[in-house]
Simulated scan of single mutants.
Amino acid sequence: MTAPATGVAAAVRVERGHFTLDVELDVSAGEVLAVVGPNASGKSTFLHVVAGLVRPSVGTVRVGERVLTRRGQRGAEPDVMVAPEHRGIGLLGQDPLLFPHLSATENVAFGLRSAGLRAGPARERAREWLTKVGLDGVGDRRPSALSGGQQQRVAIARALAAEPAVLLLDEPLAALDATAAPQIRQLLAEQVRGTGTTAVVVSHDVLDAVVLADHVAVLRDGTLVERGRCADVLSAPRTAFTAALVGTNLLAGHRDGTGVRTAVGVLEVAGGRAAADPAGGGAPTGEPDATARLSAPAAPAGRGAPDVPDGGACVVRFRPSAVELFEARPDGPNAFEATVRWLEPATGGVRVRLAGAPELLADLEPAQAQGEWLRPGGRVWARVDPAAVHLAPAA
């Protein structure tokens, strides 16, 4: 039977050469926190500090009332550094790290036996967990006879079977192919929520936050830049960095009659008024951003629009698919010139990253991205659909 869920709290500082991680995060009992950000933002370092694999320069880690790490606190009690194997914390990473000489059943049973369970009951429980993760009938196979996705399922079963007080997931889907990743992601979500396990999942993919987590924390260069409920942060990011991370364009601006003055010029707004921002409880007059679908059901179009008076400071959001790119200046409103920084994959097409402060994103069909004029460093013209421009008062 799963033990009652326990919360985790960490306030740590890690100094490594020119990089410093300085983060304070907590997760309530039974909830899942996603920590997202680009490579080298400190995500895995934070997880390894909680797991006891990295010793912080200063800070504390607690699970419930139990202090697992205490370092460098002047005038406080003596330092504490509980060994990883004594923390009651499970860690699941990209690599399943299965014992090659043991069967799938024995791999899952290993953690249970290490916790003191006798061999027979441990194997019985291991078989139950293999069934839960969809591997009924393969318990006698060794890892070499299993596919990569099956090995990862064994690792998930092993991690959850041990019933850790806290489960840490470090990019657990990064090594999987496009077919296996969605299955494993959904499996993790079902098992973590079904057992009420307190968990922290580290990822560079915001989809992991959408599917797995209750709350999301965004790291950049070792610093926490945003934290909140997934629906709030992903549908209405407060910083340009987070907006780019979740695939939404964000600009600062001032309302100017029927439009808004921004760094790229005056952008017209459909209908001559501010479209309702998803975080403001209303519905935009145009098609909503993809991330807005995470929010609560919207009010009828045009109602509940935030009050952004003429001259008032605001933030402007529009989806990348609302940006068209041209080799020459197009007709119509909301056109501006920009420089191509690079092209990258996007769901169903190609994403063009436009240089600037902040960067802007445009999503194109593959056939639209083949022109020589779209090379990195090239100058292009962009146009934003006025119906897709959503405003909200500046914080």
Rank of each mutant, 00 (worst) to 15 (best):
P320I: 02
Q368S: 14
L245A: 07
T105C: 14
E359L: 02
R255I: 11
T197N: 01
P84A: 14
Q152I: 03
R229A: 13
D136M: 05
Q151P: 01
T285Q: 12
V108Y: 05
E163N: 12
P288A: 09
V201D: 02
A213P: 05
W373T: 13
P376C: 11
V35L: 10
P386G: 04
R70E: 09
Q152A: 04
P182Q: 10
G286R: 03
A181Y: 06
P78C: 02
G37M: 01
G194H: 06
V12W: 01
P172M: 14
G149A: 09
A301P: 09
L160S: 07
V260Y: 01
A328Q: 08
V58K: 04
R353W: 03
P84G: 10
A357Q: 15
V133C: 01
N334A: 04
H48F: 03
G52P: 02
V380E: 06
L117T: 15
P320L: 02
A301E: 14
G134V: 06
L53V: 03
A240C: 06
T45V: 15
E327S: 09
Q183N: 06
A275P: 04
R62C: 10
V108C: 13
R123P: 08
E31S: 12
G265S: 08
G88V: 02
D170A: 08
R62L: 14
G30Q: 05
L135D: 00
R379G: 05
P172L: 14
T339F: 12
L219P: 07
L146M: 14
V315A: 06
N107M: 10
A3H: 10
V67G: 08
R329M: 13
S103W: 01
I89R: 00
A279S: 13
L92F: 11
C230G: 08
A338W: 05
H18N: 11
G75N: 14
L188V: 04
L112D: 11
H254R: 11
L135R: 01
R229L: 10
P278M: 13
A104V: 14
R317L: 12
A180L: 12
G222T: 08
D136G: 14
L135Y: 01
A76N: 07
G228D: 11
F110V: 02
P393D: 14
L354R: 01
E128Y: 04
P288N: 09
P320F: 02
G72S: 11
S28E: 12
L25G: 00
A355M: 08
G90S: 02
F99G: 05
D256Q: 12
A175R: 07
D331F: 07
V54A: 07
A305P: 02
R220L: 08
G302R: 08
H254L: 02
V206S: 00
A236T: 14
L219T: 12
H254V: 12
L360C: 00
R62Q: 13
V264A: 06
G371N: 07
L168N: 15
E287C: 00
T347C: 04
C230R: 05
A162W: 00
E85T: 01
A161H: 08
A119R: 11
A10W: 00
R351S: 05
I184P: 00
V308F: 09
A199S: 15
V154L: 06
A155G: 11
V27Y: 03
V166Q: 08
D26I: 10
G377C: 10
Q186R: 15
W129C: 03
Q186T: 15
Q73S: 09
F241W: 10
A155L: 14
A299T: 15
G304F: 05
